[in-house]
Structure formats: C-alpha cells, structure tokens
Nucleic acid binder design. Sequence first.
DNA 1: GCCAACGTTGGC
DNA 2: GCCAACGTTGGC
Length: 153
Amino acid sequence: MANYWLFKSEPDEYGIEDLRKERDGVGRWNGIRNYQARNFLRDEVVVGDGVLIYHSQCKVPGVAGTAKVVKAAYPDPAQFDSASDYFDPKATRETPRWFCVDIQFDSAFDEVVPLKAIKQQEPLGEMVLLKQGRLSIQPVTAKEWKYILKMTS
DNA sequence: GCCAACGTTGGC
DNA sequence: GCCAACGTTGGC
C-alpha cells in the first residue's frame, strides 16, 4: 500500500454505509469542488492507497471506516451534466476541471472515532485534519493511520 | 445558520 | 500584478 488519505463526506449524502452497499463495495468518489483537494486526487492518489472515510457535517464528526483506492483519477462526469448539482459550465471534455476516483469499501467501525477524541491525542496533533480544517481530501501518515485504527479497538 | 480559512477570479 | 470579492468547506 503506497499512501494513506482521509476523505471527507457528509453521511447524509454519501457515507460509509452507502459505499458498503455498492456492488462489490466499489463506489465513485466525486463531487470534489475544492482545488487543493482536487490536486491531491488528480496528482497523488494512486491505486492501492488506503483511505480513512471521515463523516462531516453531522452530529458526531469523525472517522467512520476505511476503504482502498481501486481506480486512479479520471474526469468527474458530473461536471458535464447540466442537470447535476456538480455541473460546472466552465469545464469541457478537453479541459476538465474536476476529478474523481473509485474506492472500495474495506471496513466500517462499530463506533465512529470522533473528531473530539482525535483532538485529544497528542500523537495526532500534526494531522492535517486539525491543522487545516476545511480540506476534504488530505494526506495521512502511516503512524496516524495506525493510531486511528488502534482507537477503534 | 454563522463565520473563519483558503484558493481562485477578475477589475483596474 | 495587486487585492477585494467570491465560492467552498465544515465545526460549532
């Protein structure tokens, strides 16, 4: 496994359970409309990478499970669909602006590891999650990955 | 729903 | 090329 990431989603829109229900647990991770997040997706996320699925904009924000990347970046089809919420009139097929990846469900935690608990762990103090709050795709170190998984047991 | 952080956009 | 306005995100 090459690298680790944290992907944020709103569970009301598409959470860990939605991913689990997909055929073979494989779903498209799209709708990313933030440039920093897009650059990570497009340039650095590769097949085999591990993903922490993070639930935001909900009662208890936190890490809800894990997944792995099964298809690297390709243009997000929704940007070309005028009926979609994610439509972008400035994007063209020749010069797409937004990208997505496919990920496969790996595990759902019995209980979410809350943001509040993460903030209290000294070894996690350098997580991008805490440093830059509003970034929906972000790198996670191997140490942080292991530590979060340990917090579920 | 408020507001803060960050990146892009666009007028000049 | 400066910088104000704007869009997106997300905890509270």
